[in-house]
Simulated scan of single mutants.
Amino acid sequence: MEWTIQELAARAGITSRTLRHYDRVGLLTPSRIGANGYRYYDATAVARLQRILLMRRLGMGLPAIAGVLAEEVDVCDGLRAHIAQLEGERDRIDRQIRSVRHTLEALEAGAEPQMDVMLAGFNDHYEEEVVSRWGERAFRAANDWWHGKTLDQQRAWKRAAEDLVAAWVAAARSGISATSEPAQALAARHVEWLSRIPGTPTADGDRERSIEMVHAIGDMYVDDPRYAGMYEDATKAAFVRDALQAYARTRM
């Protein structure tokens, strides 16, 4: 099966002039040129054009596209990479749709939209951190789960989180040790709370990685200023860390 340059241009939504330019710069040559001087393109050429157009839509310039195609050994590997890029773009757009829908629903209900939800998909500022620590699937699962909640469900979850933080602060103020039964009961409650977040090792039932995660979260509550302030001061944050890590060592 072959197509003339006019047929291919019409199907691809570009001009014949563009196809001729791609030929001149070495991006896409015709499969053959007929005796009449017409350019013809076969299925392999069309597949290459598809990839060129995909990379153009991703904002790549022609020299960069040429470099990708020149370095590529296996066409199927290249197509798989494009599928992964497109799926990532689709996920980003889905998150943006959910964010805008959240804003609309909140405004229609006379409520104030939450900034972190409104900007989800536009600025997922924890994505790199979560992906590097727990993997892409963990981020996507947790992110989709959170942004799939209604406004009321998100508020209920935040209230539960605030109640847990308040319980930790009260326990730390009381002067009990991090290894005491009340502190360890709070640690168990905290781990159970984490297990309700899809994509986390605790939700997956992965004991070894769950222990690693609880240790890492305990350190994060002390070391990361974004979280340390939740527990009022460094001493109380250290109490939470010590209780969680003791629980992970002895009861998980």
Rank of each mutant, 00 (worst) to 15 (best):
I5R: 03
I5E: 02
I5K: 03
A10R: 15
G13W: 07
G13C: 08
R17V: 11
T18R: 06
T18D: 07
L19Y: 12
L19D: 06
L19G: 03
R20H: 12
V25D: 08
G26Y: 02
L28C: 09
P30M: 01
S31Y: 05
I33R: 14
A35N: 12
A43T: 15
V46F: 07
V46W: 03
R48T: 12
L53K: 09
L53C: 05
M55L: 14
R56Q: 14
L58F: 14
G59R: 02
G61Q: 15
P63R: 00
A64I: 02
I65L: 05
I65P: 01
A70S: 08
A70H: 11
E72H: 05
V73S: 12
D74C: 14
G78V: 11
G78L: 04
G78Q: 03
L79N: 02
L79F: 13
I83R: 12
Q85S: 13
G88Q: 07
G88E: 06
R90E: 14
R90I: 15
R90T: 06
D94K: 12
D94R: 15
Q96S: 08
V100P: 00
V100N: 00
T103V: 11
T103G: 06
A109V: 01
E112F: 08
Q114Y: 06
Q114D: 14
Q114C: 04
Q114S: 07
D116C: 06
A120V: 02
G121K: 02
Y126P: 01
E128A: 14
V131S: 01
S132A: 15
R133N: 01
E136S: 05
R137T: 08
R137M: 01
F139M: 04
A142P: 08
A142W: 11
W146C: 01
H147C: 09
T150N: 00
T150I: 14
L151T: 10
Q154L: 13
Q154K: 09
K158N: 07
K158E: 10
A160N: 13
A161R: 07
E162A: 15
L164I: 03
A166S: 14
A166H: 11
A167N: 06
W168H: 07
V169H: 10
A170L: 12
A171S: 13
A172F: 09
R173D: 15
S174I: 05
S177N: 04
S177M: 05
A178G: 14
P182C: 12
A183K: 07
A185F: 04
L186Q: 07
A188N: 09
R189F: 00
R189G: 15
H190D: 04
V191K: 01
V191Q: 03
V191H: 02
E192W: 04
W193D: 05
L194S: 09
S195L: 09
R196Q: 15
P198L: 01
T200L: 14
P201I: 05
A203H: 11
A203L: 02
G205V: 11
D206R: 03
D206Q: 04
R207I: 15
E208N: 01
R209D: 06
S210A: 12
E212Q: 06
E212P: 02
E212G: 12
I217P: 00
M220N: 08
V222P: 06
D223K: 08
D224A: 02
D224M: 05
G229F: 11
G229N: 06
E232P: 05
D233V: 10
T235P: 00
T235V: 11
T235D: 10
K236P: 00
K236T: 09
A237F: 13
A238C: 03
A238S: 13
A238H: 10
R241K: 15
A243R: 05
L244Q: 07
A248R: 00
